[in-house]
Amino acid sequence: MNNPSREEIKEVLDNAKTIAVVGLSPNTNRTSYMVSEAMQKAGYRIIPVNPVADEVLGEKSYASLKEIPEPVDIVNVFRRSEFLTDLAEEFIEIDCPVFWTQLNVVDDNVFKSLTEQGYTVIMDRCIKVEHAILK
């Protein structure tokens, strides 16, 4: 598994406006909340994907990626690695260009499958850290 270069990641972040965050918790102490809040403050639109929350960070939450009624530039995943196969299948259905998983969330088969299909895949990287380094 080889993530895109820092230059390619910078381009992804520069071109993105909307980030769907799978597993975004309404709990302000959770990493998913803190990272998403930082990205929201940096100017990105955050769309929460959490079947048990109605709203997170002032945005309506959706139970799944397929329920989001608008285009998404990045899907950022805060779920455990064993959920990536199912999430990747749903991701393909919404025609989003970038599949990004947070630290320690890795599935080599998903990485290979999605990159072979032409998607940009970034795994085991914190989007907030990358944004801070590259801005």
Rank of each mutant, 00 (worst) to 15 (best):
A20C: 04
V72Y: 04
L114V: 06
K135Q: 08
K66A: 14
I68L: 04
V121N: 08
E82A: 07
K66C: 04
K135M: 10
L114P: 01
I68P: 03
G58F: 13
A63M: 05
E8P: 01
F91I: 06
I122D: 08
R79W: 08
K60R: 15
K128W: 10
I94G: 02
V52R: 13
D14P: 00
R125D: 02
A88E: 02
I127D: 05
S32K: 02
S113Q: 11
V56F: 12
N29H: 10
R80N: 12
K128A: 15
E55R: 14
A88W: 02
K41C: 02
S64G: 08
P51R: 13
D95W: 02
G58D: 09
I74H: 07
D124F: 06
G58W: 13
F99E: 02
V106Y: 10
N109K: 14
E82T: 06
D14N: 13
R79Y: 08
F83N: 13
L24G: 04
S113M: 15
A63T: 06
V21C: 03
I92G: 03
V12G: 06
Y62C: 04
A20I: 08
A63G: 12
I19G: 01
N104H: 11
N15F: 06
F91Y: 15
L57W: 14
E130L: 04
I127K: 01
D86S: 14
N104I: 00
D73A: 10
T120L: 08
V105E: 14
F78C: 07
K17D: 13
N27G: 04
R80C: 07
V98R: 05
L87K: 03
Q40D: 09
A88P: 01
N109E: 15
K41I: 00
